[in-house]
């Protein structure tokens, strides 16, 4: 996250930290963010996993304010299922259908338990998004600037505004790289944005007065670059896909 502020996971209790195991047994490598959408399921981005699509290579933590550290109240999970979108595609800049589902379970076969630092995030109503100009929250352990090469130790969050497709499709923004299954969001002063390492994490907008997972951090040109908004997978357009994989499992809050 470029700009914004450091926070604690109690402020974003649905945030999931997804790590890659190290073959040599060394420390885990932070990979991407995710969002807890029901007790057993985390939503993230397919581009995070497409090159190494083996569920055994990943570990998911909930309740973490500090990366690669023990956080009181955290929960650690193996990935029981790793579901990548079958129509995922990479363009020059854009990622299409950039959504993934991870079924999580502890070493004793449990799913997530609610606590001060662990909570699910609501899914949007079908094809319903917050209005253009709405303030939405982003969260992650991603880089604090485009030129950084280290991730911050502490969780960050910031606020960006939803941008219309019309504005985002302008030639000096992203032109035809943008389609209706994506959402664009940015800071009017181009001072804060999601960045590398925030991929898969949440864009939380209020819909009907409820914090809702409206977007999944997907792609963008640089970070906090003028006329280059962050681009997010538009979750309200993927509810059938989510449903088809999670089923009518209770606890999915639509």
């Amino acid at each position: 996250i470029v700009g914004g502020e450091f926070t604690v996971v109690e402020n974003q209790p649905w945030f999931a930290a997804i790590y890659m195991k190290n073959k040599g047994g060394g420390p885990l490598s932070f990979k991407c963010g995710g969002s807890l959408i029901s007790a057993c399921w985390v939503a993230s981005a397919t581009h995070c996993f497409i090159n190494i699509p083996n569920k055994e290579d990943y570990v998911v933590y909930l309740g973490q304010s500090k990366r690669n550290s023990y956080n009181p109240g955290e929960m650690k999970f193996e990935v029981e299922q790793l579901i990548l979108h079958e129509d995922y595609r990479e363009d020059t800049l854009a990622y299409h259908n950039d959504i993934a589902l991870l079924k999580i379970r502890t070493s004793t076969g449990q799913c997530a338990q609610p606590s001060r630092s662990i909570q699910t995030i609501c899914l949007p109503p079908r094809f319903v998004d917050a209005p253009v100009g709405s303030d939405c929250e982003i969260t992650g352990f991603g880089q604090e600037s485009h030129t950084d090469y280290l991730y911050p130790k502490n969780l960050k969050m910031s606020v960006v505004k939803l941008i219309s497709h019309q504005e985002c499709k302008q030639p000096h923004y992203y032109g035809s790289e943008i389609n209706y299954k994506m959402l664009c969001a940015a800071d009017p002063e181009w001072k804060t944005d999601s960045c590398m390492g925030d991929s898969g994490g949440p864009l939380i907008c209020n819909i009907n007065d409820r914090p809702t997972l409206s977007g999944i951090v997907s792609w963008g040109r640089g970070c906090a670059e003028k006329n280059k908004p962050g681009v997010y997978t538009r979750v309200s357009f993927f509810l059938s896909w989510i449903h088809s994989h999670i089923g009518e499992e209770n606890g999915l809050a639509f």
Partner: peptide, 22 residues
Amino acid sequence: KKPSSVDQRGFQCGQKALRPRF
């Protein structure tokens, strides 16, 4: 009857603890 957004595992989507621990 629990409000609709509370599921049987006690999750209340989108709800945050009243205030952060510190």
